[in-house]
Simulated assay, not measured.
Amino acid sequence: MPEVIFNGPEGRIEGRYQPGKEPNAPVAIILHPHPQFGGTMNNQIVYNLFYMFVQRGFAVLRFNSRGVGRSQGVFDHGVGELSDAAAALDWLQALNRESRGCWIAGFSFGAWIGMQLLMRRPEVEGFISVSPPENLYDFSFLAPCPSSGLIIHGDRDRVAPPESVQKLVDKLKTQKGITIEQQIVEGANHFYEGKVDTLIDSCGEYLDRRRAEIAAGGGR
């Protein structure tokens, strides 16, 4: 898993990159939680999501947004972090020009950034949003949500309470042409203490199922 440095809007960005198993392997980008609350690319959920995609042959990138680790710049309340994510996806796609398929996964603050990036990138075929904090950030930009995806969260989450995530799911489910799947991890708090394996297994099962549907000619 090579350490990589690439150029972002505010200077260098530090990441970890695993090439795909085939030249046309799908790509995935993983986005970390809030930097001001200790969120980095080494967060255990980000790390495990990264390897979930690696194990399925994807070319995968996780990275530190501006001001985190060795990435230059300072925290920008989501605006700059979205620009960093776009630059990271550009870098990943430039390395994988023959790639078939693009996915975005994010945890908490990273889910918010990831869903904004989704709106800008029509080539994204799917997303995984872990514990999106609908109560803390404005998700009204998802109008309409451009691709199908998974929203997964814990029933004991006090940071992103189940009722607020439910509001987001209910809003997105009214859109035609896409399918938002919701899964609830029983007994899980925001950090999935003791439930990380359950979370990753659920995400992996969803990814396998969606990839099979897409390969069979299913919609977005």
Rank of each mutant, 00 (worst) to 15 (best):
L118E: 04
F109N: 03
D157A: 04
D90I: 07
S164T: 13
Y137K: 03
D170K: 14
A59Q: 01
N189D: 15
A59F: 02
A111V: 13
R16Q: 13
G11N: 09
P133T: 03
D208E: 12
R211N: 04
T174F: 10
L168H: 09
E193H: 13
G218N: 04
A111C: 05
T198D: 12
M115A: 13
T179K: 14
A25V: 08
G106E: 15
E123Y: 05
A105R: 10
D208H: 12
I184Y: 04
Q44N: 14
V27I: 14
H32F: 03
L92M: 07
S129R: 03
N42H: 11
I29F: 03
V130F: 03
F107T: 02
P35W: 00
P122H: 05
V196Q: 05
R120K: 09
L117I: 04
K173L: 10
V124H: 08
Q166H: 08
L136F: 12
I128G: 00
A94L: 11
S140I: 07
A143Y: 08
R16P: 02
F37I: 04
L82K: 04
A59R: 09
L142Y: 09
L117K: 13
T174A: 15
G126Y: 07
P132C: 09
G67N: 02
F127D: 12
G15P: 00
I29N: 01
I5V: 12
I214A: 08
K195F: 04
L118A: 06
R211M: 12
S148I: 05
L89Y: 14
L92K: 04
L142M: 10
F50Q: 01
E3C: 06
L142G: 02
S164F: 13
L117H: 10
S148K: 02
